[in-house]
């Protein structure tokens, strides 16, 4: 198992290295001289010696490999440059917006697991019953409902008609835990709806497949109750494909997070990255790209480790 994790970790590091190179190259591919373009207003571009001085100051006269090394060293030490839009340090901006988004992701995942897995299990156990049909219909709606529409309807229902929850806004957890949870209930639910539906469908089909296996009959022949058969023998193998779906859902959440953050006025990374793209705010885009990569890699690593735990056959397969 240790070797297995080590190999996966190595894979992740190689991919991360490739992505940093790619992110750096993209910056180089921008037409013109990025830093100079940004300085255009403050220096006289026809003054060759002034331009040369600025280029030297920013290391732009160095060979590209040296520039990459410098950039990487700064990035690793937390110097991610300055946002072109607001002039703020990208690192500070990023860290400030990280916690609302993480909270959003975490909450959405809790919703999707909390709804999706039980719904899938019940659907599989009561296959083809009225309950199953109702659940299947529900999951279908969950998968296909557009997030922005769902968000508006829920705000209308739970903040306007029945004013139980705040319609939007974000309060950090450590400022007011209760208000934080109340204000995050809707956004996390909206973000988790899609993956809850997806998860329910995967759990149902995976569990049904496992329940048809010979070893389930063996477990029944041992004298286990139906509940014990499911809990002790069916759930673990049935979760193997489900873990992948949870990981994928998490990795894809940033896209949905943009809508949710805009609609619920949450100052998070989704909004920041989309804003950065529109404003061609390069330092912010670079930081976002690397963060997204890191997120996907970490989740994949976690999924792989869980896989190894759930399926002993994978531990030996290199």
């Amino acid at each position: 198992m240790g070797r297995f994790i080590g190999v996966r970790l190595l894979h992740a590091l190689v991919i991360l290295a490739l992505v940093t190179v790619l992110v750096f190259i993209i910056a180089q591919l921008m037409p013109g001289d990025g830093v100079l373009a940004a300085m255009a207003g403050s220096i006289d571009m026809s003054d060759a010696s002034a331009v040369e001085r600025v280029r030297k100051q920013y290391g732009l006269d160095q060979p590209i490999l040296v520039q990459f090394g410098d950039w990487l060293a700064r990035f690793v030490t937390g110097d991610w440059g300055t946002s072109i839009g607001g002039g703020e340090k990208v690192y500070d901006m990023f860290m400030r917006r990280l916690s609302p988004t993480l909270e959003l992701f975490l909450g959405a995942t809790i919703w999707s697991i909390g709804i999706g897995i039980p719904a899938g299990i019940i659907g599989a156990l009561k296959r083809n019953s009225a309950v199953d049909v109702a659940l299947t219909t529900g999951t279908m709606i969950g998968v296909s409902i557009p997030a922005f529409w769902e968000a508006i309807m829920l705000i209308y229902l739970l903040a306007v008609i029945f004013p139980i929850l705040p319609p939007s806004g974000y309060v950090p957890f450590f400022e007011d835990p209760w208000l934080n949870i109340k204000s995050m209930l809707l956004p996390t639910f909206v973000l988790g709806t899609h993956s809850a539906g997806l998860l329910a469908r995967y759990v149902r089909s995976s569990l049904l497949e496992v329940l048809g296996q010979d070893y389930i009959r063996t477990a029944r022949a041992k004298g286990f109750s139906e509940r014990a058969v499911i809990v002790l023998h069916a759930l673990k193998p049935a979760m193997i494909p489900v873990v992948t779906v949870i990981g994928l859902a998490w990795a894809h959440m940033l896209g949905g997070a943009f809508f949710v953050e805009v609609i619920f006025a949450i100052p998070g990374l989704g909004r920041m990255s989309v804003d950065a793209i529109f404003q061609k705010d390069f330092p912010v885009m670079q930081a976002t790209l690397i963060a997204v990569t890191l997120n996907v890699l970490l989740v994949n690593l976690l999924v792989d480790i869980l896989y190894g735990y759930l399926d002993p056959r994978i531990r030996v397969r290199r």
């Binding site: 296996q213 010979d214 070893y215 009959r217 063996t218 477990a219 022949a221 023998h233 673990k236 193998p237 193997i240 759930l310 399926d311 002993p312 056959r313």
Partner: peptide, 12 residues
């Protein structure tokens, strides 16, 4: 049972 390959639970 007749199938020793599939009658044991692979994950336990």
């Amino acid at each position: 049972f007749q199938e020793p390959m599939t009658s044991l639970n692979p994950v336990l």
